[in-house]
């Protein structure tokens, strides 16, 4: 149990996907204009990563390994993720309009979010078992959501700040991200 907690904490804070692994920077800059959409995007990402990780885990060990076609890994994973996103979108379109209102618009963006593919691949390359896979699949996107939320709160204030003309918009946001990475790197070594 302790190991699992350590692993989760490390994935959220120390090896944060955005700040130390540079994954998911596009939605990080794109969907961080206000904190409400940051939370929506974060939740959708957690859900998709968890589902996609479980499916790819079983597909890899039960189908790919048994049929000796491990080299199809990448193409399997990307198709599974894309299909899963379509399925989820269709499902919530049909059965829950309110959920669709809050999360639906972020779903199409997730197919090309590299965090999803990264987590699915990472579970296999690190040789995680089922429990570790599940922990990883929750902790990594949780770290993504945490940083996305903090970042959006900073950005809401940044609008009223006096920024040099050429730094307006994305460049200053990247400087802020750099400073956040500096702050997060101070947490190295706590686990």
């Amino acid at each position: 149990m302790g190991e699992i907690l350590t692993m989760a904490l490390a994935a959220v804070l120390i090896n944060n996907v955005v700040l130390s692994k540079f994954l998911g920077v596009c939605p990080f800059l794109g969907v961080s204009k206000n904190s409400k959409s940051a939370v929506g995007m974060g939740l959708a990402v957690i859900f998709v990563i968890f589902g996609a990780s479980l499916i790819t885990y079983f597909l890899y060990y039960q189908v790919l390994v048994k049929m000796h076609i491990e080299y199809m890994q990448l193409i399997t994973f990307i198709l599974v993720i894309a299909a899963f996103v379509q399925f989820v979108e269709m499902f919530i379109k049909k059965y829950s309009a309110s959920l669709y209102k809050n999360l639906g618009i972020y779903l199409p963006l997730i197919t090309t979010n590299c965090v999803v593919l990264y987590v699915a691949q990472d579970n296999i390359t690190q040789g995680y078992n089922l429990i570790e896979t599940m922990t990883n699949a929750i902790a990594v996107p949780l770290g993504f959501m945490l940083v996305l939320y903090l970042f959006s709160c900073i950005r809401e204030r940044l609008d009223s700040a006096d920024t040099p003309e050429s730094f307006k918009g994305n460049p200053i946001a990247l400087v802020v991200a750099g400073l956040m990475a500096l702050a997060f790197s101070g947490l190295t070594g706590i686990v």
Binding site: C26, P27, F28, L29, G30, V31, K33, N34, S37, L79, A82, A83, Q86, F87, E89, M90, K93, K94, A97, Y100, K101, G104, I105, Y106, L109
Partner: peptide, 27 residues
Amino acid sequence: YGVLYYFNHKTPKPEGCENLRSSCEGC
């Protein structure tokens, strides 16, 4: 995947959600 994609795009959006916009300006 193709079938899921096709059916997803045939499923109509629920009422009140036709004009949802995400605030994505990433790329």
